[in-house]
């Protein structure tokens, strides 16, 4: 387990970036910096982090960054990784930092290709559950019921489960994480960095602007997502699937906090009726059933 006191104090995420108050992406980037430091090179497709970098010729981010068109992050990263392989830069870490739209919608084809070729990259999907940079439009990763500027009465479909799609690709490492649990995320990043091939980490990232909550509550909302069981932390590594220790207690339904505690903090769910809440609760049950079955089937050892 990562000890927070042992983490480097130097961060590649500096003051003066262009993020909104309470931004989960800056939290995430700080943790990436703590986990990978100077070894990382970021590939960033269109999204909030295109803006967060700040205005040329300055930047609030100390990472080297290759910005790239929306659909091609995993492909540009593949090229970078091959170049480093040829040049013998063995410990370079090519890290894609892409949003949920850039991952699950427009970027999924390139990601699928990179996963099939098992390119040596760490792909992080920072999931704020909508197209926030363009003004809160739905993505395929927006959850059921959520208001967005293209789903005024709430989204009718459930969230696309991209990590499962990555497991289906046979990627050597797939994990879920949350900006509310930095030590878990950093540990997973470090583990990913030690593995050759395509590593996929799906980072849950509550967005105060898009989800309509107070910017001081980003971490609280992120934690509640895990504690209510609507976001499950797990790891899939070398064919073994296991629920992460921080999510483990919530395998038992009675240990979970009521979903309403999570929903009521967010304006995007304000319009939900009892039936909608039931739909989401049933979804949580169904997901947990699936993950626990996967754990059983895919040979996890209890931790």
């Amino acid at each position: 387990m990562v000890n927070i006191k042992e983490l480097p104090s130097k961060t590649l995420l500096m003051p003066g970036n262009a993020a909104c108050p309470g931004c989960p992406e800056t939290l995430g980037l700080r943790y990436v910096s703590m986990a990978l430091g100077d070894k990382a090179v970021l590939v960033i497709p269109a999204g909030c982090s295109s803006v967060i970098q700040g205005i040329y010729p300055k930047s609030g981010i100390g990472f080297p960054i290759l910005n790239i068109v929306f659909a091609a992050a995993a492909s540009a990263a593949s090229g970078l990784a091959r170049a480093y392989k040829i040049r013998g830069l063995e410990d370079a870490q090519v890290v894609v930092w892409a949003g949920d739209g850039g991952t699950g919608d427009i970027g999924i084809q390139a990601l699928s290709g990179a996963a099939e070729r098992n390119e040596n990259i760490i792909y992080i999907c920072v999931d704020n559950e909508a197209y926030m940079n363009t003004g809160i439009q739905r993505s395929s990763l927006t959850p059921y019921g959520a208001w967005t500027t293209t789903t005024w009465t709430g989204k009718k479909e459930h969230k696309k489960d991209v990590p499962l799609i990555m497991i289906a690709h046979g990627a050597p490492y797939v994990a879920t994480a949350s900006v509310g649990f930095p030590t878990d995320f950093i540990e997973k990043l470090r583990r990913a960095a030690s593995i050759k091939g395509l590593k996929y980490i799906h980072l849950h990232a509550p967005c105060p602007v898009g989800w309509r909550f107070d910017p001081s509550k980003t971490v609280e909302v992120a934690k509640l997502a895990v504690q209510t069981g609507i976001w499950v932390l797990y790891e899939y590594r070398g064919g073994v699937f296991r629920i992460s220790p921080l999510s483990r207690p919530y395998a038992k339904k009675e240990r979970r906090k009521p979903l309403k505690e999570y929903l009521k903090l967010q304006g995007r769910f304000r319009h939900l009726g009892e039936d909608d809440v039931k739909v989401l609760e049933a979804y949580i049950e169904e997901r947990w059933k699936l993950y626990l079955n996967m754990e059983k089937t895919l040979g996890s050892k209890a931790t």
Binding site: V43, L66, I68, V69, A71, A72, A74, S75, A76, A77, S78, G79, L80, A81, R82, A83, Y84, K85, I86, R87, Q109, A110, S112, G113, E116, R117
Partner: peptide
């Protein structure tokens, strides 16, 4: 050389671009 068997032309040029940005002839 390394051959990247990409899944589309959009990715073909993006991957070649990544390699060139990484300092090799692509």
């Amino acid at each position: 050389a390394e051959m990247i068997h990409v899944e589309s032309e959009h990715s073909a040029l993006a991957a070649a671009y990544g390699a060139a940005a990484g300092g090799v002839r692509a």
